[in-house]
Structures are given as C-alpha cells and as structure tokens.
Amino acid sequence: MSTLIDGLSLGSIYALIALGYTMVYGIAKMLNFAHGDVIMVGAYAILSTIALLGSPIAAIVVAILVCTVLGIFIEKLAYKPLRGASPLAVLITAIGVSYFLQSVAQLIYGAKSQPVTIGNFGSVAVGDTKISLAAIITLAAGAVIMSALTLFIKKTKMGRAMLAVSEDRGAAQLMGINVNKVITVTFAIGSALAAFASTFYLMQIPSTSPTLGAMPGIKAFTAAVIGGIGSIPGAMIGGMLLGIIEKISLSIPVLAPYTTALEFSLLILILLVKPTGLLGKLKREKV
C-alpha cells in the first residue's frame, strides 16, 4: 500500500516533467533536452528564496515564475532562430543549453549538493502502515495540476489552438493561429510544470546540485516515450507507470540494484511491441 502511494507520487513527478517534453515535442516538433535542467533551476530558486525569505510558499511561487520565464527565454533565444533548421542542429543546441544551465548553476552555487528543506512532512499511519505525507501531497497536487491542464487544453481557445498546431501547423495558421505564440505558451506551461516537479522532488529528496535535473529528466523522457511522445494523456500514464515500477522494484531486495535497468528495459519492450508508445499515433504524412 505505501509502496503504491510512493510509486504514484514519484509517478506524478515524472508525469509533470514528461508533460513538458511531450507538449513541446507535439507542438514545436522538437526534443527539448534542456528540460530536465529547468527542474534544477527551479530547485535552486527554491533554495535561494527560502534562504532569503524563509517562506516555502514564496519559494514555490518564485520557482514557478523563474522557470516559466526561463522556459520562454530558452525558446526565444535558443530555439526560435532555428525554426525550420535540421532536427540535429536543434538537438545539439538543446544539449548546449543544458550544459549552459548546469555551468551557470555551478558558478553561482558550486558543484556540491546543498540541502533544501521545504518542510517536515512526516507520515500518517493508516492501520499498520505508515504513509509519507509528502507522497500524499504530491499525489493529490499532481492530480489537481494535471486535471487543470487537461481542462485548459480541452476548454480554452489557447488549448484548442495547441491541439491544432500539434496536428497541422500550416492548417492552424490558415485558421489565424499565431504558431509562435502557441509555442511560447507551450514552453511557459511546460516550464511551470517543471517548477512543480522541483517542489515535489525536494519534498522527498531534500537536496539539490547542478546535475539534479539529469536523472529525473531522463526518466521522465522515458516515461513520455513509453506513453507515446506528443500525447498528453500518454505522458501522464507513462509517468505513473514508471513511478510505480521504480518503487515496486526498489522495495524488492533482489531487484532493487537493477531498478534503472528494469525501467529502460520496459521502454525497449514497449517500443518493440508498439513503436509509437502506448497512446502515440503514427502521423500520417501530409501531402
């Protein structure tokens, strides 16, 4: 029971990050490999705000603002000039942005990891088992955030514009949709979600370093691909699935050391059976 809650809570973190990868891929048709590092920046934003103001709530708000603005800047400065360039050029740029963010963090904060305490959450007892309160908060907040995102996409004009651009950029332009604006909003939303991921991550593992984003970034990217990259529900399901498998595997002593290998094997297995991921669709080529 507590393993399941832990898994779902870790899964929420992966899902929030995976949403950033998948939305940017779906709409801008590029892999933003610097996305994991946005989480790291969010974590440092939390660290600094707590040091300055002492308030975890303020820290979360600041992290959301910082990450959102950072996402918009990365898109405007690094990726927008490459619109229409080869995917390889964009990928290399993304890796460059990733190293850049890590180096800046290292210059400011040093290479060593530093403790960050958002709060002491403890755990609640349900019958005989103890369930971590941080996990419950993560799970509940993650569910609220993801429902809000789903509603936003379904019900608002901007949400429908995002769906239209992801399906057919040219046709979307013919409808009067400003593709550049939609891409900017997508980066902003993806990065804001990353700031939430930073928060929940630090609630469970209260320390940060310049490479903090790497592992959750890779895992969440795996989750996005498992779910079908470009698919929003796919990212949510992929994230949850990966979180649960990771926690279950870690709770079984024989499997624990091989957990990461197990997760990537799952990726390979799913791609062998269904190359587009669980919910991914094969894009029909446009004439």
Partner: peptide, 14 residues
C-alpha cells in the same frame, strides 16, 4: 481570405 487547402487538412483528432 479563407483557404480550403489541398488534401482538406482538417484536424483529424478533433
């Protein structure tokens, strides 16, 4: 000015 493009290009998933 509206344009009905070649191959229709409706939004298939909507």
């Amino acid at each position: 000015m509206a344009h009905v493009p070649e191959g229709r290009r409706i939004f298939q998933e909507l």
